[in-house]
Amino acid sequence: MKENLSQKLFDLSNKVIVLTGSAGRLGSNFAHILGDAGANLILVDIDYKKNEKIEKIISKKFGIKTICSNADITKKAELEELCKLSVKKFGRIDGLVNNAFYSPRTNIKNSAMKFEEYQSDLWNDVVSVNLTGVFLCCQIFGKIMSKQKTQSSIVNISSIYGINGADQRIYGKSKLNSPPSYAATKGAIVNFTRYLAAYWNKKNIRVNTMTLGGVLDESYMDKKFIKNYSEKTIIGRMANSDEYNGALLFLLSNASSYMTGANLVLDGGWSAW
């Protein structure tokens, strides 16, 4: 039988991948595409009930091995315990997707807060998840990867608001303004990725960023905001929650074997004009 080179290129069979924020809208999509590609998954989300439901679905659907964890990524001890459990079960770690994040944007009271009045406690809460959490995950799971001889990959998730200033004009009366803490942490992720790629240059660890545009969510976005946002993209709409799956699969697989320290921007053309 003729070997299917394209399938082999994106194949993740028996790879062991840690996915944080696995119970979220993007995270659950990521869990499905990685499971479909054959990866064994360590699903990490503080919403254990929802995470466990996703775990049961994908393990049955794809026949993969999984670990379901509600470890808090801001707590080093909890991550170390999870790492120990993961290595004991699988023997190695082949990939890490730092997808978990916190943004107070969906909380109208916090979103409507002016920068001059933005609370330091709220700032610290966002930084602890979006930046410190990523640092700890990279440090703990990356330590295991650095001792392995096989190729591994880390994907850090950023946002267009990590590379562009938030356009205040599109929010109108929606009060969904993107907070300063979100911009600061997502911007930091881009250069933290470059640092790690350079630091682990001889350790068989590739580290890249996926910078994402806004995902449509009509549960809290009003029609005016969706229209304003869509008009700023070349494609003319917001992203669907499954449209980043292919890019993630690319970055974790051998398809991107010559790529590290890069920032893959998927924003519907937002930043192109």
Rank of each mutant, 00 (worst) to 15 (best):
K2H: 12
E3P: 09
K8I: 14
L9S: 08
S13Q: 04
S13W: 03
N14A: 10
K15D: 07
K15A: 05
V16C: 11
T20A: 05
S22E: 13
A23H: 01
R25C: 07
G27T: 01
G27W: 00
F30I: 07
A31Y: 01
G35Q: 04
I42F: 02
L43K: 04
D45V: 10
D45W: 04
D47Y: 03
Y48N: 08
K50A: 13
K50L: 11
E52I: 03
E52T: 10
E55Q: 13
K56I: 09
I58Q: 07
S59H: 04
S59D: 06
K60H: 14
K61V: 13
G63T: 01
K65R: 07
I67N: 00
N70Q: 09
T74N: 08
K76F: 01
A77Q: 12
E78M: 12
L79C: 07
E80L: 09
E81D: 15
K88V: 09
F90A: 09
G91A: 08
R92Y: 09
N98C: 00
N98W: 01
S103A: 08
T106V: 11
I108S: 10
S111M: 12
A112L: 02
E117V: 06
Q119C: 07
S120E: 15
N124M: 14
D125S: 14
V126G: 07
V126A: 15
V127F: 11
S128C: 08
T132K: 15
T132V: 13
V134Y: 04
V134L: 11
Q139C: 10
Q139I: 10
K143Q: 13
K143A: 15
M145K: 06
K149E: 14
K149P: 02
Q151V: 10
S152C: 10
V155M: 08
I157G: 05
S158Y: 06
I160K: 02
I160D: 03
D167C: 00
G172P: 12
G172S: 12
K173A: 10
K175F: 14
K175G: 02
N177S: 14
S178K: 11
P179T: 14
Y182R: 06
T185W: 02
A188G: 05
I189H: 07
I189C: 01
R194M: 09
A197W: 03
A197F: 06
Y199W: 11
N201E: 14
K203W: 01
N204S: 13
I205A: 06
T209Y: 02
T211F: 02
L212R: 11
D217W: 01
E218Q: 13
S219E: 13
Y220Q: 04
Y220P: 01
F225S: 04
F225I: 09
Y229N: 09
G236D: 11
N240Q: 13
L252D: 06
L252K: 09
S253A: 08
Y258T: 00
T260W: 02
G261P: 06
V265A: 03
V265Y: 00
L266I: 15
W270E: 09
